[in-house]
Computed example of a mutant assay.
Amino acid sequence: MELQYLTETRRHLHQHPELSMQEFETTAFIKRQLDDMKISYESPLPTGLIATIPGSSSTAVAFRADIDALPIHEENDCEFKSTVDDVMHACGHDGHTTMLLGFARRVKQLADNNELKTTVHFIFQPSEETMAGANQLINSYDFKSLDAIYGLHMMPDNDEGTILSKPGVLTASATEYRFFINGTSAHVANKEQGHSAGKAVTFLLNQLSQLQHYHLPGLGHNIIHIGKFSAGEAINTVPSSGYLEGTIRTFDMDDLTTVKNQMERIRSACEIVTGTSVRIEFAEGYPPTINDSDAYRTMHQAAETTDLEWIEKEDPYLFGEDFAFYSTIAPTAFAFLGCRNEEQSYVTGLHTSTFNFDESVLIKGINVFEAILNQYEDKI
């Protein structure tokens, strides 16, 4: 019965994906599920919600699932394929949401039997992919006193039956940068009268590509990625406008400060060398996800009571994850749930148009959540 519920729930969510801060139908669906379970909830933002099942003690823990989808056209050939053009649950958030709903069903049963001592909060968070939904939620809701917050994320790089994490830093910070260039146009016959935005873009490309080598520690794990650039308007004119954007990934916030300061120097030098006007903007992204030592130990011990194989990673991931913001309000621990299944050809990565998984793996995730809860129940 549980697998049937999880399968139906996940496939409904998968067929009806919604982008960040547009998850209105997704939120309505979650509310209907919670109403059926007679679980109360609050909605501090237009989308997403926080449900609560009170326990009999002062101990309180929270579990988080993200609910948004990605602007990707799905290429899976399955009966529950996305019905929304160019929008897809390609990062497993349909699975995360389903796991949390399934876990809520189990916890509600404990509460109905007067067996729940720990208050449990279920965070259905919008906008993980963009706009830092976690941070928006924290700024809009009083979480009061929490002993810890936990999260799980699907991971197709590792087989079903595994769970992966590490102490300390688990994922990188993610910050976007954008250069806006204004030059002076001129006809190609009088090119010396212009100030080329194309030359400025070339200068920026050259300098940014050397930033890692000359200004950051050699042993650090950092990425200064150039994702998109353009310049010019016509084939026979000096380019009067240009643009360049990319992302910065680092585990050390001091390294991020170094990168941003050096980019400002590059911007200034570009103006001097090319005679253009250059402006840089940073979109403050996600800080590194850092596992609290006690919360990590609790999650590790809990997972070992399930049938999952615990894999402790040596190196952190270089992608960003906005679960990181929750560490500002409580100890946190985050892990990745293996969902690779070669027999079913579920082998493609996150954010790909063919990402998929078997719903039975969601039970393993719920078992971990329940085992974590039991760690707190046993101490009361």
Rank of each mutant, 00 (worst) to 15 (best):
N261I: 02
S56T: 14
N114C: 15
R105T: 02
T27F: 07
Q210Y: 14
V169A: 12
G133M: 08
G194H: 14
I290H: 04
L244W: 03
G55V: 04
P239R: 03
I163R: 04
E176A: 15
N291R: 06
D358W: 12
F63E: 08
I149N: 12
A186L: 03
I235C: 03
Y41C: 09
P217G: 08
T59Q: 09
D294G: 01
Q15G: 06
V278S: 04
I311T: 06
P217A: 09
T27E: 01
V84K: 03
S140W: 09
H14T: 01
F179N: 04
T257N: 11
T98I: 02
M154W: 10
K191M: 15
H12M: 05
H73V: 07
Y5H: 10
N158L: 11
P316N: 04
V188R: 09
H213Q: 14
D307Q: 12
G242C: 09
M88K: 07
D292G: 08
Y243Q: 04
G168S: 14
A335D: 02
I50C: 10
A200F: 01
F29M: 03
G198K: 05
S293N: 10
A302N: 00
G183Y: 01
I235G: 04
V61S: 03
E377P: 04
M88Q: 10
F336M: 12
S196W: 10
I280R: 06
Y5I: 11
G320V: 13
S145D: 15
A200L: 00
C78K: 09
V368Y: 01
Q125L: 02
K31P: 00
E359M: 10
G194L: 15
S58R: 09
K81W: 06
P44R: 05
D307T: 06
R279P: 00
L101G: 05
H12Y: 15
M154Q: 15
K108D: 04
Q33Y: 05
G242T: 05
E176T: 05
